[in-house]
Computed example of a mutant assay.
Amino acid sequence: MTDKELVQRALEMRNFSYAPYSHFAVGAALLCEDGTVFTGCNVENAAYGSTICAERTALVKAVSEGRTTGWTTLAIAGSGADFCWPCGACRQMLYEFAPQLRVLAVNEHGQFQQASLSELLPMGFGPSSLK
């Protein structure tokens, strides 16, 4: 799958977003090395702390289907002109499974920038930190 195709999947996932409070729809698409893609959207809640981001939705779907390794690229598409980078909680959750994950931050026009998760969360805390 090309970066452009993965970005398109993330953009499409914004249509399923439940964002009645922020009105900021986000979609995510997580690519695995075998070509499998897990998608997600943000789901807000009146108790704001219970809100789940699009990238964590995709992550949880992958894990719940037995996929905890082999993640290569994550595209995150927001509904604004700015590039949509993962929040701190998402960075931490992703780091648990894929510290070298490639992240594509996408704006509403489909343009994107990229960085590795280890660049976004330098000196991250993960499973090897507990050994």
Rank of each mutant, 00 (worst) to 15 (best):
A29S: 04
G27Q: 00
G49E: 05
A62F: 08
V26F: 00
E44Q: 08
G126V: 05
N107I: 09
C32H: 00
Q114K: 07
A89M: 09
T39M: 05
L104H: 02
F83H: 10
A89Q: 04
A98C: 13
L30W: 02
T36G: 01
F24E: 13
R56S: 06
I76A: 03
L59A: 03
S50A: 13
G70F: 15
C53M: 09
C41S: 12
K131H: 09
W85K: 04
L121V: 07
V103N: 05
A47I: 15
C90A: 12
L121D: 13
I52M: 10
A58C: 08
E119M: 10
Q92I: 12
L117R: 02
A46M: 13
G88A: 14
A98I: 08
V103D: 01
L117V: 11
A77K: 02
Y95K: 01
P86T: 04
L30D: 02
D34T: 07
G40V: 01
C87N: 12
V106L: 08
T51D: 09
T69P: 02
V63Y: 01
F38H: 04
L101S: 09
N45G: 08
H109K: 12
A77L: 14
L94W: 11
D82L: 10
W85L: 07
P127T: 06
V26W: 00
V37G: 08
W71M: 13
E119Q: 14
A54Q: 01
G126F: 03
T39L: 06
L120C: 10
L30T: 05
E44Y: 03
C53R: 01
A81Y: 10
A75G: 04
E65M: 08
D34I: 09
T73N: 07
Q114F: 05
G110N: 06
L101Q: 07
F38C: 04
L74E: 08
F125T: 15
A47Y: 11
V106C: 03
A105Y: 03
T68M: 11
G70A: 10
H109T: 13
A115Q: 14
A115K: 13
A58Y: 03
G80C: 09
L94F: 12
Q113G: 14
D82V: 10
G70R: 01
I76Y: 03
G70C: 13
W85D: 05
G78K: 00
A115T: 10
E55D: 04
L30K: 00
C32L: 15
T69N: 07
G126E: 07
W85S: 07
G126Q: 07
M93H: 14
F112K: 03
A25D: 15
N42M: 11
K131V: 15
F125M: 04
C84Q: 12
T57Q: 08
Q114P: 12
V26P: 02
C90M: 02
L130Q: 07
F24A: 12
P127N: 12
F97V: 11
G88R: 03
L30A: 02
L101G: 05
C32S: 04
C90H: 01
L117M: 12
L104C: 04
A58I: 09
E44G: 07
L94M: 13
W85E: 08
N42V: 00
M93P: 05
A77F: 08
E33M: 01
V60P: 06
L94G: 05
S79E: 14
C53A: 14
L120R: 06
A58T: 03
R91P: 10
R67T: 15
T39C: 12
V106T: 00
G110I: 13
L101M: 01
T68I: 14
A89L: 07
Y48H: 08
